[in-house]
Simulated scan of single mutants.
Amino acid sequence: MPELIRRGRREPAVVQTLRATAAATIAYAVALWLSSEPAPLTAPLTALLVVQVTLYSTLTTGIRRVNSVVAGVLIASAFSVLVGLSWWSLGLIILASLMVGYAVRVGEFVPEVAISAMLVLGVTRVADTAWDRVLETLIGAVVGLLFNVLLPPVWVGSAGESIGDLSRRMRLLLLSMGEELTGPTPVETAAARLHEARRLDNDIAEVDAALRQAEDSLRLNPRVREGLLNRVVLRTGLDTLEICAVVLRVMARTMTDLAKDRGDQELFPSEAGRALEELLSHVADALVSFSVLVTSQVSASAQAAEQRLAEGLRSALACRERSAGLLLDAVRRNPRNWQLHGALLAEVDRILDELDPEHRSRRLMEELDRSAREQRERHPRLAALRQWAGGGRNGGTGAR
């Protein structure tokens, strides 16, 4: 049972269900206290619409949703006084609601303006009651916004788990490919590995969705320090794994071509095949170490992960040099398919280069600079205020 509770707390769907239920219930209780309506259902409805998985999405899409609902209620209030409800007034209210929705720029929530107007017009034709709907809408909106401001979730853990799962799947694929290098490999087996490598694209798309949710949970979140750094670390980490997945697909294609040409023969001479199998094993372990590094939240854990990655890369590079020498000897004896041998080494080199800590540090700094520059361009006044505040503190320190 405790394990189920812990897993439920990490599952966005479970957490969102509980949060939405609590927000809607609280909004209804507050509306019962403040509104004259016997059943103020607009308040919990608005709370359900406003409460999102993250604080950032609440403050962005939530405000637009509030605008759309309020606009629909106001339109229904005017129509309830002037014309009431009939087939032609329903068409007119839908037309007016959609036009107003585009005018007030509620984005993808334009249909909700018309939906809110029809709901209110269907339950009441009295202007005073419609204004109660406006009050209920505001109550639900405030409760929904406060709920995420006071209890903003952080989904970095679930995104980190997704990245770790992706790296382990890539590791298993590399180990399977390495086992096929020491003996005859049927074309069907090599093609199956190629199909597994192609399926990594779907896995990356799922991890990307989890990462976007984590990035939103870090924006404007008072529970998180250095949110920009955390977002960039995770994003650049996934970008690196995505590049490695593409290289893995190319590597699987190379081995499939070799299997087609070799037939019942070994893909490589026995000694070279064993060296390549060891090399792919080191690369597979380095991929997992890299994922641990980019998802570590504690500095001590990150330092240990970086040390393991560095040791794994050193072992891989030493094994790569030995494999290259053995492949060169094999090509001298039999130059057939030499280009595929060279392509396999080049693909390994590309993965090792992507996992290199120095290469990663450069990319990380570039992304941090780019993100900071975009923030300054998007919010120049806020950037100027921060610069002024920082200058003032520096100046005061210098004076002392």
Results as ranks from 00 to 15, higher is better:
Ala47Trp: 01
Ala302Met: 05
Ser176Met: 05
Glu215Gly: 06
Leu248Ala: 07
Ala302Tyr: 00
Leu34Met: 00
Leu151Phe: 14
Ala103Glu: 13
Asp261Gln: 11
Glu136Gln: 10
Ile5Ser: 14
Ala117Ser: 06
His359Arg: 12
Arg308Ile: 07
Gln297Met: 13
Arg253Asp: 14
Val81Leu: 01
Phe79Met: 04
Arg199His: 06
Glu358Val: 15
Ser57Asp: 15
Glu180Ile: 04
Ser371Cys: 08
Leu218Pro: 08
Val232Tyr: 07
Asp132Glu: 13
Leu48Phe: 09
Ser162Asn: 08
Glu196His: 07
Arg199Lys: 03
Arg308Asn: 15
Thr21Ala: 15
Gly84Ser: 05
Asp264Ser: 13
Arg386Gly: 11
Leu340Asp: 11
Asn221Cys: 08
Val81Ala: 01
Val233Cys: 09
Ser323Ala: 11
Leu280Arg: 04
Ala47Thr: 04
Arg235Ile: 03
Leu98His: 02
Ser301Val: 12
Arg381Tyr: 10
Val283His: 09
Asp285Gly: 05
Glu311Arg: 11
Arg333Pro: 12
His341Gly: 15
Val207Glu: 06
Leu280Thr: 07
Leu267Gly: 06
Thr46Ser: 00
Gly122Gln: 01
Gln375Asn: 05
Gly227Phe: 08
Arg333Glu: 10
Ala114Glu: 05
Val69Pro: 00
Gly144Trp: 00
Gln16Trp: 01
Val83Lys: 03
Pro44Met: 05
Val156Gln: 09
Leu119Arg: 04
Pro153Glu: 09
Leu309Cys: 10
Arg376Cys: 10
Leu280Gln: 03
Glu277Ile: 06
Ala71Cys: 13
Val106Trp: 01
Ala47Lys: 02
Leu200Gly: 09
Leu279Asp: 11
Ser35Met: 09
Leu174Thr: 01
Thr182Gln: 09
Cys244Glu: 02
Asp285Leu: 05
Arg336Met: 10
Ser167Met: 00
Leu145Ile: 04
Trp88Val: 09
Pro2Trp: 13
Arg350Gln: 15
Lys260Ser: 13
Gly237His: 11
Pro186Ile: 12
Val283Thr: 14
Pro222Lys: 09
His379Tyr: 10
Gly312Met: 11
Arg360His: 07
Ile351Phe: 11
Glu277Phe: 02
Val283Tyr: 12
His282Ile: 06
Arg400Lys: 07
Glu266Tyr: 01
Val69Asp: 04
Pro222Asp: 10
Tyr56Asn: 01
His379Pro: 04
Leu313Asp: 02
Asn148Ile: 00
Val134Glu: 03
Ala275His: 07
Trp131Arg: 06
Pro40Val: 08
Leu55Arg: 08
Leu174Ala: 07
Ala324Glu: 15
Leu146Trp: 08
